[in-house]
Design a protein around this nucleic acid. Structure first.
Lengths: 335, 335
DNA sequence: CGACTTCTTGCAAAGACTTGCGTAATCTGA
DNA sequence: TCAGATTACGCAAGTCTTTGCAAGAAGTCG
């Protein structure tokens, strides 16, 4: 079966050049001729020879650190859906408890000729975790986008929620309600977004002339149970309000408050972070700082698709403004 | 049998070089030629030399229908973690809104030489959706395990929650509380687990001598909003209790009750299904039927790993008993 | 350890597709 | 009706992909 394009050309009675132009949607072909060629292509079952760029599997790796915090599946749906719409196939990679590391997954994806990678809150957010695999991606020029914390020095384009603004929103809300004894429950100490939140809180406390002793800022794992334990300690310290670095932590905080025989909102106010699904159905509906995951996800996709199309990446970090969603887990400070 | 690679080459009518390139997934071979070589390899029963075969990627596809219902991420974590512990790399595949079909994903996985596949509530649960890709998996002898509904006639081993028992638990609980007017909100009409639940409800109603008119059994999408709409209609019918086929549906039901100016539990009782995360933090804490996802996930892994190790699969369906978790969304029937 | 077999790879040629350019056909306006 | 402009298309040269040849590398067996 030789000269397939020529075959089609002969069938229609035009030159190969014309068929080529139709295939590439180039101008210079009349509508009638174009239609004739298109039907002939259909009849003969012509298939484009695999193109250099196109014959990559068009896979995109999508890293989520876990699935128990609903914010990550939510990110997954948005980014995955957007990738699909752009003709890419998302491959979800999650740090399963059992044990594949992020580096293992990266190797796997490279082996499968992945076209690009999106990291949502991956290992890179933890400053002390290994980072070699990011360097590898950089070296191989694999388009990569990070969500919610940059890798220093590699120049990957990044999309983040502005942690400083998030803390500010929560802090000011609580201050306005009269709270003076505010505690923070953050993620691990080497987790970049938590560091940024800590930093912002320090600045706010300083400018308000309020001390923020180390005993009021606790680092814990990102789980409900850890949040409960940390909040219990803060309550013993005498805080009247707790700002948490994720919604599951806030749920833990609510439990700790109740376990201590106190009332959420009337005795102790709790602010979450993420505004993941169901937080309005919680008891009490959670006041929380919403990450704008929809626009963030869309921006991440746009940046990735741009790189995939060959445009050089902006190695900048775009900061998205979160917004405070006031529900019923916060209330005036008790006297 | 001499010159094994040459043999294949002769069969296809290409040079050894080309066959070599296909085997090593090198570029420079057209898609058509590559396919021809691959089928010839199968026909001649060619086995690739030790090196390549051993370090096969050991990938396992893991299908989840969506991520917004937290039960699916939960399944994902359990099965994904278990696979990792057994040395397999899970590749999550989700039906993104944008558009990749299950069949597309299966093609992709086959292309990546996947070792096995686990479907959690995939298309196969919907009787009227295309099923060809399951046949393909069967043909290629790819070990496959299904969770929560069998594909008829293909003999895949299956792990399911016993829907009949689930409905029975909910039903008896409500009857003991004095409810006589009970409605059901199920998933789509061709969704196998929903059919099974409907069937069970019919049997229960019959044996209790209670009628179960069609207007008391509603099919809807698996979303909170659809659950709310369906429940609103049931309330207009005069039911005092609603059994839902998923937790998000139950949350919708709670909203509908409140929107109608009634109290959950005191006026209308709601029972969910799944017992996904956070359902005890909901307002009110949701009475629901718990799927034993942990043992189910472990069993699914065991069955898959068994097949991967070469043991023939049991083409049976294992039914797991769910349990009723009574919390605060159900109460005595109003008089 | 060497002869033999089997697989891999560089190179060049053939083939398939694209594109610049020239010419024929068609259209437009006087 | 005709000159000029415009469009459509083929020719042929150019670029990129695919494939076979043959030499080299790796493994195997006596």
């Amino acid at each position: 079966m030789s000269r397939r394009l020529a075959e089609v050309a002969r069938q229609v009675g035009v030159s190969e050049a014309t068929v080529s132009r139709v295939l590439n949607e180039k101008p210079g072909v009349s509508a009638a001729t174009r239609q004739a060629v298109l039907t002939a292509l259909d009849v003969l079952g012509y298939e484009r020879p695999s193109k250099l760029r196109g014959d990559r599997a068009r896979l995109v790796g999508l890293f989520l650190p876990e699935l128990t915090n609903p914010i990550f599946p939510a990110f997954g749906e948005i980014v995955g859906g957007g990738l699909a719409q752009n003709g890419y196939t998302p491959v979800l990679c999650t740090q399963a408890a059992g044990g594949i590391t992020e580096a293992d997954y990266v190797d796997l994806l490279l082996q499968q000729h992945v076209s690009g990678v999106v990291f949502v809150g991956g290992q890179y957010t933890q400053a002390e975790s290994p980072h070699e695999h990011y360097a590898k991606l950089r070296e191989l020029r694999i388009p990569t986008v990070l969500v919610n914390a940059p890798v220093d020095g590699l120049g990957f384009p990044t999309v983040s929620t502005d942690d400083a603004v998030a803390v500010e929103l929560a802090w000011n809300h609580l201050r306005q309600l009269g709270h003076r004894e505010i505690g923070l429950v953050l993620g691990p100490a080497d987790h970049v977004p938590s560091r940024r939140k800590h930093e912002a809180a320090r600045r706010l406390a300083a400018s308000a002339g309020v001390p923020l002793p180390a005993s009021r800022v606790l680092h814990s794992h990102y789980t409900l149970e850890a949040g409960q334990a940390a909040t219990a300690r803060l309550l013993a310290e005498g805080v009247t309000a707790v700002v948490c670095a994720s919604d599951p932590l806030a749920l833990g905080a609510i439990r700790a408050v109740r376990r201590a025989g106190r009332q959420v909102a009337t005795d102790v106010s709790i602010v979450g972070f993420d505004d993941s699904a169901l937080m309005n159905s919680i008891d009490p509906p959670l006041t929380t700082v919403r990450q704008p995951i929809e626009p963030m996800g869309r921006m991440a996709i746009e940046m990735l698709v741009g790189q995939l199309a060959g445009h050089p990446a902006q190695s900048e970090e775009y900061l998205f403004e979160p917004e405070l969603v006031v529900r019923a887990s916060t209330g005036p400070a008790p006297r």
